[in-house]
Amino acid sequence: MSQITPALRKAFRNLADIMIPGTDTMPRGSDVTLHEDVLDRIMELRPDLEEGFVRGMTAIAGMSAAEGKEHLKQNDKTAYYDIGLIAASGYYMDPRVREAIGYPGQVSNPKKPAPVPEYIANGMLKRVIDRGSIYRPTPDTD
């Protein structure tokens, strides 16, 4: 059973907004509901991250988000990494964020090789060929 309580979620929301602040063009962490459904989805995909998340967020209970981030960085690198991975992964999986940074994701994008690639048409490859062979043949050892 998940140990992620509403209080930990709230603290994670605040921490996520320190880690991933908003800008004129980019949403902040909480804008993409990192602390809600996204957190649940990540825990489904990576249940191994829950231990570090719960330990780290529990350890910084009562601290400001900035203090909590610094505390984790200094005292619990594993939890720091796990929480950071959760935040960053959740953020960059969001379609709005991907659109904002111009990243379509790893999607099917088939393309047939050109009959005459650019590097052949513009003579670049010919210059390599014209410099001649550069390998050492098998020596005669008889």
Binding site: P21, T23, Y81, G84, L85, A88, Y92, I101, Y103, Q106
Partner: peptide
């Protein structure tokens, strides 16, 4: 490929470093 695929992505450093340098500017 993706945001976290830089060399060292396997040891996860870039994500953490990105926070300190400003995550948006790094990924931009």
């Amino acid at each position: 490929a993706g945001p976290f695929s830089l060399r060292g992505g396997q040891d996860n450093d870039p994500i953490i470093n990105a926070w300190d340098d400003g995550i948006h500017s790094v990924f931009d």
